[in-house]
C-alpha cells in the first residue's frame, strides 16, 4: 500500500533482528492520571510530561502554551506530578520532564530552575531542554540528570548533536520532523548518543524556527488553510499549502529499529482526545511487537486490520490513501530541500 522509499533512503532500509524491537522504546505524552493509564495500556515504555509554570509567570516553561485549543497541555500541580512519576516508575516507565521552553528570560531564570528542580525532585529521569542557555543552567544545577535535546532545539545535523553532547552533556537528541532515514542513520552512528524520532507528526515548517502558530485563531500555522496566488494573478484556495503532510511512520518502524534508534516519540501532550492519542501508541506498539514476532510489515498491517476498527475508519483514509508517509517517496517528500 505504501509507496517505495526514495533513492537516498532505500539503502538504509533493512529488516531488523526480532530481538532488536525490545531495544526501541515508545515515548508517549501524559498530562494526567487518565492519560498515564491509557498510555501504559497502549504499550508506552517512557512518558514525557510538563508541569504548569508557577503563578505569575507569563510564559510557559516548556514547548507548548499552557492550553492549546482550550485543552491543557501540562500537569496541573506538583502533587499530581509526583503521583504520575511515581505510578509511571511503578509500571517500569522512564519519565522525561519537559523543560523545553524555546527561551527563558533572565528575569524568569530563578523560577525556571526552581520549576525544573521540582520535577527532578519528584523523580524525573531526564530533563528535556529547548534552549542552549537553559541547558547550561540545568547542567550546572543537576549534573547527574541526563539532558535530552528537544526537537525544538533544531538539531538538524550530526555536527550539532556532537557539539551539544560535548559542550552541554546531552545524551539524547530528538531529531526534527523532516529528517530522512539516511540522516537518522548518521545520528545513530554517533557513539553514546540516544536518538529519538518523532512519529505520527510531520508538518510543514521547521518547528525550531517557526512563528506561524502565532497567527491568531489559525491553529498550527503550517497546518492551516490558505488562500492566495502570485502577484497580479487571481487568488485561489491553496488549502493546506504549508502542510508537509508526512506524518505516519508505521510502515517504517522496522527500518527505524534496524537503524538503532532509541525511542519513537508519540505526539499529543495537548491531545483533546486522549483515548485516540493512546491508540496511536498502541498502533506503534503493534508494529514493534510484529517485529519481535518476526513478522513482515505486511503481516503486521494485516493483523492490525483484523483487530483495529480505527485502522479502516481513520488511519487508512487519512494516512495511507493521502500518502502522508513520513519516510516514503511521496509528492510531499520529493519537495524536501
Amino acid at each position: 500500500m505504501a509507496p517505495g522509499h526514495t533513492e537516498r533512503e532505500a539503502p538504509f532500509v533493512r529488516l531488523p533482528e526480532p530481538t532488536a524491537a525490545a531495544r526501541v522504546a515508545l515515548n508517549a505524552p501524559v498530562r494526567n492520571l487518565q492519560m498515564l493509564e491509557l498510555q501504559i495500556a497502549g504499550g508506552a515504555d517512557e512518558i514525557y510530561v510538563a508541569h504548569r509554570a508557577p503563578a505569575g509567570q507569563g510564559g510557559s516553561f516548556d514547548a507548548l502554551p499552557g492550553r492549546r485549543d482550550g485543552e491543557p497541555t501540562q500537569i496541573s500541580n506538583r502533587r499530581l506530578l509526583k503521583e504520575i512519576i511515581t505510578q509511571a516508575h511503578e509500571a517500569g516507565l522512564r519519565v522525561h520532564l519537559c523543560a523545553d521552553a524555546p527561551a527563558v528570560g533572565a528575569a524568569s531564570r530563578a523560577h525556571f530552575l526552581a520549576h525544573v528542580a521540582q520535577g527532578v525532585e519528584a523523580g524525573a529521569d531526564t530533563v528535556v531542554v529547548g534552549a542552549l542557555s537553559t541547558a547550561r543552567w540545568i547542567a550546572r544545577d543537576h549534573p547527574d540528570t541526563p539532558l535530552v535535546a528537544a526537537s525544538g532545539l533544531g538539531v538538524t545535523t550530526v555536527s550539532a548533536a556532537r557539539y551539544l553532547r560535548e559542550t552541554y552533556g546531552f545524551r539524547r537528541v530528538v531529531v526534527p520532523h523532516g529528517m530522512g532515514l539516511d540522516e537518522i542513520a548518521a545520528f545513530c552512528a554517533v557513539d553514546g548518543l540516544e536518538v529519538e524520532v518523532p512519529v505520527q507528526t510531520g508538518s510543514g515548517a521547521s518547528c525550531h524556527s517557526c512563528r506561524l502558530p502565532d497567527q491568531r485563531g489559525a491553529g498550527l500555522g503550517c497546518r492551516a488553510g490558505y488562500r492566495g496566488g502570485t502577484a497580479g494573478g487571481a487568488a485561489e484556495d491553496l488549502a493546506a499549502f504549508l502542510d508537509g503532510a508526512s506524518d505516519c511512520a508505521l510502515c517504517d518502524v522496522p527500518a527505524l529499529v534496524a537503524l538503532g534508534v532509541t525511542a519513537l516519540q508519540i505526539p499529543g501532550r495537548e491531545s483533546p482526545i486522549v483515548r485516540q492519542n493512546a491508540k496511536i501508541t498502541q498502533m506503534y506498539r503493534r508494529a514493534l511487537d510484529g517485529i519481535a514476532r518476526g513478522w513482515s510489515t505486511k503481516q503486521t498491517i494485516e493483523d492490525i486490520d483484523r483487530i483495529e476498527l480505527t485502522w479502516q475508519m481513520g488511519w487508512v483514509p487519512r494516512m495511507c490513501e493521502k500518502q502522508r508517509c513520513r519516510f516514503r517517496d511521496t509528492p510531499h517528500r520529493r519537495a524536501h530541500v
Binding site: 499552557g66 524555546p102 528570560g105 525544538g152
Partner: peptide
C-alpha cells in the same frame, strides 16, 4: 539561527510580529 519565544502560560493570542528577544544568555552561548 534565532532564539525561540516562550509560549504563553495560558493560551493568550500572540502576534506573529511580536519581537524576538535575543537574551544575553542566548548570545553568550
Amino acid at each position: 539561527l534565532l532564539p525561540g519565544r516562550p509560549h504563553d502560560a495560558a493560551e493568550n493570542p500572540r502576534s506573529v510580529l511580536e519581537p524576538i528577544v535575543y537574551e544575553p544568555a542566548f548570545l553568550g552561548e
